[in-house]
Design a protein around this nucleic acid. Structure first.
Length: 94
DNA sequence: CATTTGACGCCAA
DNA sequence: TTTGGCGCCAAAT
């Protein structure tokens, strides 16, 4: 059961990111759209950046360009985590 | 309360 | 196809 009934944008984003299935990756755009604003892709990153809750697999959130994006603990760690979870998707290096 | 920054996205050249 | 610039929203300072 997914309760996306949160007050602020961040709560919604956190809940949505938390609902991302293991082995799958979601784009900031998609999360933003689910949160209610398809254009708030940046805001999504801003939220994840300041919230690294262990319940929130923010490392499963990637860019729409095919890039990894960023990660509070280090982009390299994020890539490793995704790979370990079974993500076959390949990300850009630069 | 106002301003700046940012884990982004999309369009144009 | 690749690079550059602009636009978007929310949170943090």
């Amino acid at each position: 059961m997914i309760q996306e009934n949160s007050n602020t944008f961040r709560e919604r984003v956190l809940a949505i990111v938390c609902s991302i299935p293991k082995g799958e990756t979601r784009t900031y755009k998609q999360v933003a759209t689910d949160a209610g604003n398809s254009s708030a892709s940046r805001a999504v990153g801003a939220v994840l950046k300041t919230n690294f809750e262990k319940n929130i697999p923010c490392h499963r959130v990637v860019r729409s360009d095919g890039g990894l994006g960023g990660y509070n603990r280090g982009t390299q760690r994020k890539k490793e985590l995704l790979k370990k979870e079974g993500v076959k998707k390949q990300f850009k290096e630069t």
